[in-house]
Design a protein around this nucleic acid. Structure first.
Lengths: 112, 112
DNA sequence: TAAGATACCTTATCTGTCAAGGTATATTGA
DNA sequence: TCAATATACCTTGACAGATAAGGTATCTTA
């Protein structure tokens, strides 16, 4: 997933994770599969990026975590979005929409 | 211009500069003023970012530069986009449009 | 004559991403 | 039975782009 596309998504990683956690508690591996599915396999988070982002969000107080009690299969660390996390998601979503508008002007309006 | 919005634009800096240079030869200070104008003052490149990007583009062979012969005022380094630069702009623009579509799915489709 | 605008540049530092490595368990097919 | 694959987590070191802060030099304006 290297290259420009991933650099374009940079800065939105946290927002994407929060979006999924706003729907329901989940864990890293599952969220990444959902991302891949939603993008038809065009985008997925590198694992190091994924777990770094979870740590960042937890440190910021936007999510909390707990171990699931799987009685079979690999263990899972579940994440729950906090009230602050929901607010951050809304704010980030607005920021994305604003940034999108600006980029459309800056990149696309100069079409030949 | 710190914060999330600037991180969202990261990865598009080169594309933005190429877009302006595809219209006409220009120099750093002028392009930055155009960016500010197009975004109603909402976004402008940090100078260090700006000149770093020019260097990167020149090293990549996407632009060339020459000193303008101003007989008054501060000296200006003008940039010209190359054929490869135009091709890169088109490719980047497509990548941006693709990334935009993905981000809309990943961020916006989960609306409440 | 000082302040502000124009115009360029460098350095050190920060942050997010990523490749590469690791651990452990369960399932599936040869 | 046993190797491969999928699930699921984590850490480390390196890299690239963005930035704050500093600098230089000229011209205009109050």
């Amino acid at each position: 997933m290297a290259g420009i596309a991933s650099d374009m998504i940079r800065g939105n990683t946290d927002t994407i994770l929060l979006r999924f956690l706003c729907e329901k508690d989940s864990y890293g591996y599952e969220i990444n599969k959902q991302i891949l599915k939603l993008t038809d396999g065009q985008y997925g988070l590198n694992e190091a990026t994924l777990y770094t982002a979870f740590k960042r969000l937890e440190r910021a107080g936007y999510i909390t975590s707990y171990w699931g009690n799987e009685n079979q299969g690999a263990r899972r660390r579940y994440y729950t979005v906090t009230q602050e996390g929901r607010a951050a998601y809304e704010a980030n979503r607005n920021e994305w929409q604003n940034a999108k508008r600006l980029l459309e002007r800056l990149i696309e309006d100069g079409k030949d």
